[in-house]
């Protein structure tokens, strides 16, 4: 998904070149481009513009430029920095864990067993339900007094242990992580499953004849065969991880003690609740840069790993 990948991918076998192709191309492009321009590029440009102003919805004060004030005050604001840090912690935990679990699930549901389609659909179902629905269910399951999770914990520890899950600053982010992984691991699973099914099965047969064990086959056939898929999945998961919003919005509103606040939630609070559009737009810009930077960094690490 980065520049590098794209430039490499830009070696298609174009079926049309020359003037006629250009005309056709722009006709094909036009509807999407017009919409993208009006509803994505211009608003994003506006967000950049507003981030340097004191713009506030419903304020009778004149609009004026405030330079980088919105940015400097962001980086001295403990609440924002905590939200930023939460996003990073969330991404650092969720990306590897969720991708690894997704790979495990993909291999599991790639078995040729009768009824496997049922399990594929089951593991994917939370993704279908969406973040808000999943959060509603888990909110009850994680209730400190009545929740199923505490019921299980109490039964397992003979009443010794029970957690306050989403209500305790020490466990809230971890609880959100669990809910998010449960709710979206199916998505990565399906993509990886597709990748698995694309690996020719004769490779495995040949390896078996050579006496390679399961682990050796995984190392020498599965992983290399899935390389591009894994890179894609990791990038996607990273972007999704930074976009964490629905779950914290429904479940904790960023609390307790800001332990589950995220950049997007902070943006929504600042922009909608406090109507500080200038500041909210500065958060949007920082968010964008952070995701791009994180993705590029990750790319580098994966690249070095490879060589």
């Amino acid at each position: 998904m980065t520049t590098h990948d794209l430039t490499r991918a830009v070696r298609p076998r174009p079926i049309r070149t020359g003037g006629g192709a250009a005309l056709a191309a722009w006709l094909f492009n036009a509807p999407a481009l017009v919409l993208l321009l009006i509803f994505l590029a211009v608003p994003f440009g506006l967000a950049i513009f507003f981030s340097f102003t004191n713009f506030r919805l419903g304020s009778p004060l004149p609009l004026r430029f405030v330079g980088v004030e919105n940015y400097t005050s962001l980086f001295s604001d403990a609440e924002f920095l905590q939200a930023f840090a939460n996003n990073v912690i969330f991404a650092v935990v969720v990306v590897p864990v969720q991708c690894a679990l997704a790979l495990g699930l993909a291999i599991l549901v790639n078995q040729k067993i009768r009824g496997i389609a049922f399990f594929r659909a089951l593991f994917f179902m939370p993704v279908v339900l969406g973040g808000a629905v999943v959060s509603t269910i888990w909110f009850i399951l994680m209730d400190p007094s009545y929740g199923l999770l505490n019921g299980l914990l109490r039964a397992a520890t003979f009443g010794q242990l029970h957690l306050r899950w989403l209500q305790d600053p020490n466990t809230a982010l971890a609880s959100i992580i669990v809910i998010c992984i449960w709710g979206s691991v199916g998505f990565q699973m399906v993509i990886l499953l597709a990748g698995l099914q694309d690996i020719p099965s004769d490779l495995y047969e040949a390896a078996q004849l050579d006496g390679a064990g399961t682990w050796a086959q995984f190392r020498s056939i599965t992983l290399p065969g899935l390389r591009n898929t894994i890179v894609f999945v990791v990038t996607m998961t990273t972007i999704f991880a930074f976009r964490l919003f629905d779950q914290v919005f429904v479940l904790t509103h960023g609390g307790p003690l800001g332990s589950t606040n995220t950049m997007l939630l902070e943006l929504v609070k600042v922009g909608y609740d406090q109507q500080l559009i200038g500041r909210a737009c500065a958060i949007a810009v920082v968010f964008f840069l952070a995701v791009v930077a994180f993705t590029l960094l990750q790319r580098r690490v994966i690249k070095e790993d490879e060589s």
């Binding site: 191309a25 492009n29 976009r243």
Partner: peptide, 26 residues
Amino acid sequence: FRFRGRRFLLLLIVALAVVPFQAIAI
């Protein structure tokens, strides 16, 4: 199709894919 501006367009689309809707909703 091969046309002028194609690479730029691709780059633009990849960059825009990163922008979450919440960020530009206002």
